[in-house]
Structures are given as structure tokens and as C-alpha cells.
Design a protein around this nucleic acid. Structure first.
Lengths: 247, 247
DNA sequence: CGGTCCCTTGAAAACGTTCAAATATAGTGG
DNA sequence: CCACTATATTTGAACGTTTTCAAGGGACCG
């Protein structure tokens, strides 16, 4: 199974109900724009529920033909590229409600790998159909422009010249905020990725990740137990990360 | 003068000629998509030539209301943010033919400062009008999607964990390629930005920039004379930068 | 001609990496 | 249920790259 495979549109819940895929994140992106029911129906026909992908399964691989983006419904996803020496370069993590594949729009093929970190369910959006719809509904186009532009800024965020502690604090706070945005606890959550992945994302070695987390715990900022994270002092964490999160 | 100021559409050359602003880079972006003359005329009406901005003048500032993107016609531009301690974080350099302001689309205001590094002429595109046009001409929408997506990948490029030499080699080669794309020499060009700016962009101190350039010169890779750069051995430079430029 | 800013160079220090090894955990098959 | 293996994490010590601090030289501009 792959995101880029063409599958027949076996809609999950195309019943008489008009509530557009309420568990699907994309509706939350588009609904605030005040679409009416007819527009939602248009959106609905190009949505396809796919999965589950189990931990370690690839959702797409670098070079797979690009024809769809996807919203995470549940679970979490990591995207990465592999350099010629085989080292991973993690590009991002995606939680429920977030969109995968936006950086592929400029290509014929996905420019990176996407792998499930735990069991993952997705909403698949045919990009050609979505783009066609965007020419008809300006709200859809605006939403896409906004999402793309946001990703530019997101990518620029970690580009800065910051210390290991600053980046780690920003990472934890960003994760907390994203969990909160989906209604989960902002104080306590699970890291679904390995230390190695966090390091590859923050440009640190797993050893440094481990040491920084240890230091944070010794300073009473967090409590880390394996992959269980509790933020004990968000204010001080924010002080550490303030230069990165300034925006 | 500022990009975000509303000015009357005093078109520079709206004569009988239908060649759509041939010096303006955006035409080169859109023309390959095979627009006909009527479509080009539509594009023409939302283009406005502005400038000149002289070296050190701001084109827009963080917080200015966003209402336009701009293509560089001549000169070069630097975008950056300033942290709370006053340190600059350079986000990018823009040469003729390149677009400024794409990362502002998700905001009401520009998220960074843009300053002219030398005398600069711009083509200003009202973004609301451009977006409206994009709903009518799918080629325009596709071009915008592609440009945005490219910027996501561009931002991700320097996010990697690379050495000073790797980043500097990639920077020089990228500049060369961009000059070449506009018909200038790929072997020899001027750096229009200070060492400090290069450093802020590549996450290095100006001292390190200076040292790496010196080393490259000692190794016969380049010849640097003040801001005049000659690439002597692009193959070896590419070997140094291969992990970054892999894509 | 003086001043300012940019660039270069050297030496010391800091931060993060690398290397090495111990510990812990989860998954597997007996 | 337990032993076993592979993988993930933690910790320590030495090392290396880049930064920091300091100072000198050079170009451009008034």
C-alpha cells in the first residue's frame, strides 16, 4: 500500500450524513472558511481514507510518483531523505491534523520518504483534483496557499544558529502546542520517535539529545521517562527557546 | 517607498506592444506554461514596476501589511529577521528573476525584513489580484503552487547538519547556477552581500566564512578578491557540496 | 586625510561529536 | 513464562570544529 498508488475511491462513510468526514483533519482546515454543504460534498468526493500503516511501514518513498497529499487522522509520521552515505536527514514529524506531501507539489515525484512511527490512518487527497477544485472555490485555493506558505516558515524555523538546548526546548514546546491544538494534553505526551530521529531533525546526535533531556530533567524543566514526557515548567522552557519561538 | 504601500498602477510600458514585460522575471515563470496573449494581458495589468531602492533601503519591514509579492528585475535583495538581542538571521538572498514575499502569504503582514543590497528594481504583483487570477487560469495557480513548494524545499536545504566547507561550497555553486539561469557567467560573479550576511545565512561567523574562503583559495578551488568570486574548479567544489546539493 | 566599516588572521575556549561501553527495553521463539 | 537477541538509550572521556575574543590591515567615503 502506498499513498501514490491509484485506488478506487472506496469512501469510508459516504452515507446520507452530510457531516464531511469529521475525524478528518482537512475538514478542519477548510471548514473555517465557511464552505456550504454543496462545496463540502465536492471536497468529499476527492477524499479517501487509507491505512492502517503500521509502525515502520512506508507511506511513500522518494521517487514515487506524486499524485496526492494526505492528512494524518491518527498516529504520527516522519519524513526524511537519505544521503549518499546512508545517513537519514529527518525533515519533519506529522501529528493528527497535519498534512504530508506539500513539498512534493513542485515535483513529479515525492522528494522524500514518509514512514509511520506508529499505526497511522490517513485521509488521501488527489492533488490534481484538489487543484482543480481550488480553481473553482477560492477558499480552497487560499487554504492551500496558506498551508504552503506556513511550511516555508516552518522549515526556516530550525534553520537558525541555535544551541542544542534552545532547539530541544523549542521542539518540546512545539510538540506540546500541536498536541493541544488537537485537544490532547499540552503537559504530558508521548514521543513517538526515537532519540535518533529527534537528533536527525534537530541536527544533533542521539547522545546530545539524551544529555540535553537529562539536563532539562535535572533542572526541573521536564520529567522524561523513556518516551513519556511531562512538561513541568513551560515558562522556563519558553525562556530557553524564546529566540527560536519568537515568531 | 515600500512594497506594501498601495500605489496607483502606473504601468511602466503599457504601450501597444504585447511582449509582456520581457525584463520582468515573472513572465519567464509563467510563459513556459503557454499562456496566450489575452492571458498575458491579464497578467500585465496587475504588474507594477517599482524602485529603484538603493543599497541599504528597505523594501518591506517585518509587520508591514502584506499585499504583494515582488520579482527582482535587477540588483539583489536580502531577507532577514532580527531576534530579541538584535542579531540578524538572514533567510535568503534574491537575484534577478526571483520572487520575494512568498513566505508572507500565510500572514497578514510580512514576517521578515527585506533590504536592497545594491540598487534594486522590482516588479510588484498585487497578491489578492494574482490569487484571483489564479482561480481563472490554472497555469497561474500551478505556477504559484510550484514556486511555494520549491521554497519549502529550498528552506529545508540548509537545515541539514553540514560542515562550514560543505555549506560554503553549496552556497557558491547555487549562486553560480542562479547567475547562469539569468544568462550571466557561472564562473565569475560578484558577492553583493557582506561576509557577515553570508555567515548569518549559513549559520557561521564571518570569521569562519573568511577562513573557509581562504582555504578554498589555497586549495585552488576558487579565486576570491574582495567580493569578486571566480570558480576555478567547479567539479571539486561539487564534490565538497555533494551531500547538500544531492537533490 | 581621517574615519568607518569590512575583512582577515591568530590564539584560546566552548560546544557538540565521536568513540566506547554499559544498561534497558521490546520483540521472538522456545 | 523465560531466555535470548536486536535495538534503543544512557553515560563517560577524548577529540575536533567552530566560536569567541582580540588585534591589525585595507577599502571606500566624506
Amino acid at each position: 500500500m502506498s499513498l501514490s498508488l491509484q485506488r478506487k475511491p472506496a469512501l469510508a462513510d459516504d452515507g446520507d450524513e452530510l457531516t464531511f468526514c469529521s475525524t478528518c483533519a482537512f475538514s478542519k482546515v477548510c471548514l473555517p472558511h465557511g464552505f456550504d454543504k454543496a462545496q463540502l460534498r465536492d471536497l468529499h468526493v476527492l477524499v479517501e481514507h487509507i491505512g492502517p500503516f503500521h509502525a515502520g511501514e512506508h507511506i511513500f518513498r522518494e521517487g514515487d510518483p506524486f499524485n496526492a497529499i494526505a492528512a494524518v487522522r491518527s498516529g504520527s509520521v516522519k519524513t526524511y531523505v537519505v544521503d549518499s552515505v546512508g545517513r537519514e536527514q529527518v525533515q519533519g514529524f506529522f501529528l493528527p491534523g497535519e498534512l504530508i506531501g506539500l513539498n512534493a507539489i513542485s515535483h513529479e515525484a515525492y522528494p522524500c520518504d514518509a514512514v509511520a512511527l506508529e499505526t497511522v490512518l490517513l485521509c488521501r487527497f488527489s492533488f490534481p483534483m484538489l487543484a482543480a477544485l481550488a480553481t473553482q472555490i477560492s477558499g480552497v485555493q487560499a487554504a492551500l496557499f496558506r498551508l504552503l506558505s506556513e511550511d516555508i516558515n516552518k522549515a526556516a524555523l530550525l534553520a537558525g544558529n541555535f544551541s542544542a538546548a534552545e532547539r530541544m526546548a523549542a521542539f518540546l514546546l512545539t510538540l506540546a502546542k500541536r498536541h493541544q491544538a488537537r485537544g490532547y494534553s499540552a503537559h504530558r505526551f508521548q514521543l513517538t520517535m526515537a532519540r535518533t530521529d529527534i537528533g536527525n531533525y534537530l541536527r544533533l546526535t542521539p547522545e546530545t539529545v539524551s544529555r540535553v533531556l537529562r539536563r532539562f530533567q535535572d533542572q526541573g524543566l521536564v520529567r522524561i521517562e523513556r518516551r513519556d514526557v511531562t512538561l513541568l515548567d513551560r515558562d522556563r522552557l519558553h525562556t530557553v527557546a524564546r529566540e527560536i519561538l519568537r515568531a
